[in-house]
């Protein structure tokens, strides 16, 4: 299973005074089971990009292939595509609407055409995966804390059993513990189910810690694409486009400049710790 983007471009308000090219000839290959982070400042094209991956937006030019089939073909089932590539929007809890948490999570599978029993089973499984405590299942979703609501919203997408899960800033507005809990949940799904995960994030520290591959967007183009260590080597270029490396990477550069032989492209606290301790052995 893979998603391939070939020379994809998208323009908002084409032919109007507000015309704005949001994607410029983007070419990417996303393989089965990858854990990818997408970073870029506001307006760099991240959100436009992810909405192309499940066919919510239609490329102005270029092709997108899902499992080898062009998704713009007449007979391609785009509704099914949207269940196989699940998209969790920013602040997804704003979209909760049902009277109980359980009914809310059932909404997706029922829309997919499953009967009540099957939808219910899927909802149970999704809620368990998302770590929502069982005693809350029949409560209204509106009384929950921010972190809990977000879990319910993620469960709503998981209930459709997507093969690819895309999350647009899933930790925005959460406290540090809530951030860690949601990211651990996502990493767990990647590990246990081999789900392909695409995470849009503003936190360099989070992507460095969790993902295997980072795609850096700038001005509608792919600016860098590689493993965190590779990408954050270019911290000076990243700063020019409004991003930066994790704090520890700067620290390691500083230590190296002070004549200490540390692993200067470490990107996480754990890597930095191991490398510094080695000096003192």
């Amino acid at each position: 299973m893979s998603i391939i983007l070939n020379n994809v471009s998208y323009t908002y308000g084409e032919g109007t005074a507000y015309e704005m090219q949001a994607l410029k000839n983007v070419t990417l290959k996303i393989d089965d089971g990858e854990f990818i982070g997408i970073i870029g400042h506001t307006g760099s094209g991240k959100s436009t990009l992810i909405q192309h991956l499940n066919g919510l937006m239609k490329a102005v030019s270029g092709e997108i292939y899902f499992n080898g089939r062009d998704i713009s073909e007449e007979d391609f089932d785009r509704k099914e595509l949207r269940t196989r590539v699940g998209l969790v929007f920013q602040y997804p809890e704003h979209q909760l609407f049902e009277t109980t948490i359980f009914n809310d999570v059932c909404f997706g599978p029922i829309n997919q055409g499953f009967d009540k029993n099957e939808a219910g089973l899927r909802a149970f499984e999704a809620l368990r995966m998302a770590g929502v405590p069982e005693k809350l299942y029949y409560q209204p979703p509106f009384d929950l804390s921010g972190g809990q609501k977000r879990r319910v919203a993620i469960a709503g997408v998981l209930a459709m059993k997507p093969e690819v899960l895309i999350l647009d800033e899933p930790t925005a507005g959460l406290d540090p513990k809530g951030r860690d809990e949601i990211l651990d949940l996502i990493a767990g799904m990647h590990r246990a189910k081999g789900m392909t995960i695409i995470l849009v994030s503003h936190s360099m520290e989070d992507v460095a810690k969790y993902v295997q591959r980072i795609i850096v967007m700038d001005d509608g183009q792919v600016f860098l694409d590689g493993a965190p260590r590779e990408v954050f080597k270019y911290y000076e270029q990243l700063e020019k486009i409004g991003l930066k490396a994790p704090e520890v990477t700067y620290l390691m550069h500083d230590l190296k400049n002070r004549g200490m032989a540390v692993d200067w492209d470490a990107t996480t606290v754990e890597e930095a710790k191991q490398s510094i301790l080695k000096l003192f052995q």
Binding site: P176, P246, V269, K273
Partner: peptide, 30 residues
């Protein structure tokens, strides 16, 4: 209390736990 510390502080804390003689309350990478 569900909070955190800045990354430099966390690293200092971890290094101290592993035995390096670092002072408490380091806040910045400098």
């Amino acid at each position: 209390h569900r909070l955190d510390v800045p990354q430099a502080t966390l690293l200092a804390y971890e290094l101290k736990k592993a035995g390096l003689p670092l002072p408490d309350g380091i806040l910045t990478r400098q």
